[in-house]
Amino acid sequence: MRFPLAFIALAATAPLLAQSAPEIPGQVDATRVVAGTYTADPSHSLIAWEANHFGFSDYIGLFGDVAGTLTIDPANLSGASVDVTIPVSKVTTASAGLTEHLLRAGKDGAKPDFFGPEPADARFVSTSVTASGNAATIDGNLTLNGVTKPVTLAAEFTGAGNNPYNKKLTVGFSATTMIKRSEFGIMTAIPLVSDEVELEIHVAFEKN
């Protein structure tokens, strides 16, 4: 059987390509996590929200520039704590009109439909952590729109390692939860726009 020259050349270079492929810096390896306090990397942390519109489709938006701290000890995960702040004023969507609606003032002096033009930052502060393997249940208090309510996050460890650019030890987590916006005083258009809002959280923390 004769092989095309291109196939032979590719086969010959395959080992070299395999050797030169870089390793992804973050790995799902708990032994890489070092005890201490970490600070959120705002450039690589975000919270996505999703709410149904008229039963037809979902609105999806993002909060970026997440700030906050994580304190963790792999030998005592139940003692871990997280405190993050979310700048609601920086909410963004794929629709300029929707983003403007979320942040516009109420008409004729009325309350805003959603957040208003100068919304306070939201904040989540954990009260307990229950870990199981690479997953954890994080209970805490979410303050949004001036209202504080208990919220439970289903969290997952997504990786740890050294950032190749700033050389900082970094750990990453994702989490999901569901809230009812009516509990936080955001009532507009319920039930045409769903009361239930799904949150998807992705945060990278860098060791201090």
Rank of each mutant, 00 (worst) to 15 (best):
F124H: 03
Y165W: 15
G161H: 02
T176S: 15
K149E: 13
G172A: 13
R123I: 05
S78H: 08
K180A: 14
T127G: 14
A154Y: 01
V147A: 09
G64Q: 10
T176E: 15
G106L: 06
V66W: 00
T177F: 13
V129M: 06
G140I: 10
E100H: 02
G146N: 13
D113G: 13
A160V: 01
A94R: 14
N141E: 13
S132M: 10
L98W: 15
H101L: 05
V88G: 02
T99Q: 13
D121P: 04
T69S: 11
F124D: 02
V91L: 06
A135D: 15
G55R: 08
G146E: 07
P119R: 10
K168R: 15
T152A: 10
F54N: 07
A122R: 10
T71M: 12
F184K: 11
A122Q: 03
F184S: 04
K107N: 08
I138W: 03
A96I: 02
V66G: 02
T143H: 02
K107G: 05
Y59R: 00
A189H: 09
F115W: 12
P119V: 00
A51E: 10
A136Q: 09
G159F: 07
G97F: 04
K167H: 15
F124A: 01
F184R: 01
N134V: 03
D83I: 00
H53N: 15
I72Y: 14
P74W: 09
F54A: 06
L70P: 02
D113E: 13
A131Y: 10
D121L: 05
K167T: 14
P119K: 09
T92D: 13
A51R: 10
G116K: 11
G133D: 10
P87G: 00
K111W: 00
V171E: 02
G116H: 11
G146S: 07
V125P: 06
K90V: 07
N52D: 14
V91F: 00
P112Q: 05
K111G: 02
T176I: 12
T188G: 05
A160C: 06
M187E: 13
G106V: 14
L169G: 03
P164H: 07
L142M: 15
E118C: 02
S95L: 11
F114M: 07
G55K: 04
T85Q: 09
F115L: 01
A136F: 07
A80R: 11
P150L: 11
S132V: 03
E50R: 04
A110D: 12
T137P: 03
L70H: 02
V66C: 00
T92K: 01
E156Y: 07
I179D: 02
F56R: 03
D121V: 05
P112E: 11
I72C: 03
D108S: 11
N163K: 01
I190D: 04
D65S: 13
I186R: 03
F56I: 14
T93W: 05
M187A: 15
K107L: 12
G185Q: 12
I86T: 00
L62S: 04
A96H: 04
N134D: 15
F157P: 06
P119L: 02
G68D: 02
